[in-house]
């Protein structure tokens, strides 16, 4: 079971949270204007990183807020958590 540091509430056990998938996936502003390839990329393609992964979590059984996290998928260690809207901390630069 993971221990996750909510940027608003502090460290809490994993069952208080819901996983929200890869972070920083931008929805095309005008879906009708993008190609089928770009739309499929937005809907379905995820980087599935082996290593540092930027992802969303929601503290459902706590403050209820979404936030982002950097986690190493080879160890499940959290490297950082940060608020929505903030840029990912420097560790994101090493994402494989």
């Amino acid at each position: 079971m993971l221990l996750i540091e909510c940027p608003y509430c502090g460290e809490r056990p994993e069952p208080e949270f819901v996983y929200g998938g890869q972070a920083h996936v931008a929805r095309p502003r005008v879906p009708a204007e993008v190609s089928a390839d770009e739309w499929a990329r937005y809907l379905y393609l995820r980087n599935n990183s082996r290593g540092v992964h930027a992802e969303r979590w929601r503290h459902t059984h706590g403050c209820g807020r979404f936030f982002n996290a950097l986690r190493d998928t080879t160890s499940d260690q959290f490297l950082a958590t940060y608020k929505v809207g903030e840029p990912p901390p420097a560790a994101a630069k090493v994402a494989r």
Binding site: M1, L2, E14, P15, V18, N48, H53, E55, R71
Partner: peptide, 13 residues
Amino acid sequence: DAYTSYTQRGGPH
């Protein structure tokens, strides 16, 4: 488990 991972282990819950 809820999250993506390559660790070949998961949570006891």
